[in-house]
Structure formats: C-alpha cells, structure tokens
Amino acid sequence: MSLDILNVTKIFGPARGGILSRDEGFRALDDVSLHVPKGSSFGLVGESGSGKTTLTRCILRLENLTRGRVLYEGTDIHGLAQRDLRRLRARLQIVFQDPYASLNPRMTIHDIVAEPLLIHRDLFRLSARQRSERVLELLEQVGLRSEHLFRYPHEFSGGQRQRIGIARALASRPDFLILDEPTSALDVSVQADVLNLLHRLQQELGLTYFFISHDLGVIRYICDDVAVIYRGKLVEQGPVAEIFDRPRSDYTRMLLAAMPDPDPDKSPFRQS
C-alpha cells in the first residue's frame, strides 16, 4: 500500500512570547516529500536530530503537522476521524529501535502480542482461545517458541525482544511497517538474523517497509530506494544502488566516507 508524504513541515512550537517575538520555533521537518511504493522497502538515512523520528511520528499521527499531508492509499491520515484513525493504525504498524524500552516490563509476552488484537477486537472478533492461538502463530512466525508465551520481557535477549516487537507489530495484520532503527541496538550477529527475518516476512506477507537507519550497510542490504535526510530537509533520494555508487550531495558522500569499513586496508589512519 503506497504512502505519500507531501510537503510535510513540522515546527515545534515557538517559546511563548509576545506578538513581536522573533522566535519561530524549531523546524524539525522542512518541506519533506516522499513516495513509498507498495511492496517495496524504502530506506530513510539520517543522523541524530535529522528529523527522521519526527517524520515517523508524523506518519503515525502521534504528532500533528504544521503543513503538508500524509496520504496512505490516497487517504489523508491527518484528516481522519478518531475512529477511522484507529482502524488505520491496525494496518500501519511500527517496530521501535530500543527492544528494551518498547515492551511493557510488567506484561507477559502473550499479553504484549495479544494487545493489538484486544485493542482492535471490533476488527478481529476473536475469542480468548483464538487470540492465544493467533499469538502462538505469530511467535512461531518470528522464530520464538511456545514455551516463551508466559515469560516477561526481561528474560529475553535483545534480539528475542526485537522479535517480540515484530510479532506485536504483525498481530493486527498490517500491510505497512515502519521500522525505526530496528537493529541498531543489536549485536551484528543478531542484526543479521533480524534482517533476514524481516526479509522473509516481507516476502511471505507482501509487506511494505519504511526502514529508518543510520547504518548505510543495513540500508543498502534491505532497501530498494533510499532518501537521505539532514537537518529536516531531504538531501537526495533514489534507488539504493544509484545513491550509494554515485552520491550527488556532499552530505551523502561524507556519510559514506565516515562509515567504518571492516576492511583494515581501507583505514584512513594506515595510509603509510
């Protein structure tokens, strides 16, 4: 399902001052436009403070826009009534960066993954037993076992928690997934497993991915298209191969050069 971001600007409120106050507030997003085609993986690259997290919050309408529109299959997300918004949220899900902070520590895995089914029970109409079955199916889908069902998040490793987060995001059968740095808190080895899982799920379920990362290697591995964002503005966007092989902007070139290459011969310190 395609997502269109049209001229989105987000300014965080100017500090309340007099009418003559010059303070314009903080421009977190400045005229950002993107098109995410259905079934593809779209990467968004940026450093901290570039506005990438604000953009996801704007897409999910956890934040209001100052200007612009966010269209999901042609419907303006920010123009929806609360009830329709709730329905839409079942189809547009997010996986967060920090697998430790994004799961409620007081809930069992079963309750965490079942929560979307409870929130949207008007859509799914499942009995308690059917819900539990669906939770089991989801856990299996992300590579966890049934004995994990009634354990608490703190008993799991970072990688397992991220799988739980993915299972929760998939529970309401979404067709669009925002992945907000889903692997940057994980070890490289675990990152590889999670990336492969995401790739497999996309093929099985026909998902559209909006993948946010600061790791260009990961973006290159998983994404078809990529956009580079810097201080709230899009620097450039296009197919992954094109942007990475022939970056047009200085900023992208700098980012590529700063990525530490695991080949010792490419170290800038060992030129001698």
Partner: peptide, 9 residues
Amino acid sequence: HNLGVVAQL
C-alpha cells in the same frame, strides 16, 4: 562490538 571501528583504528 563494531568490527568496522576495529578495522579502522
């Protein structure tokens, strides 16, 4: 945990 950093520095 970053092998890239190790390789560089």
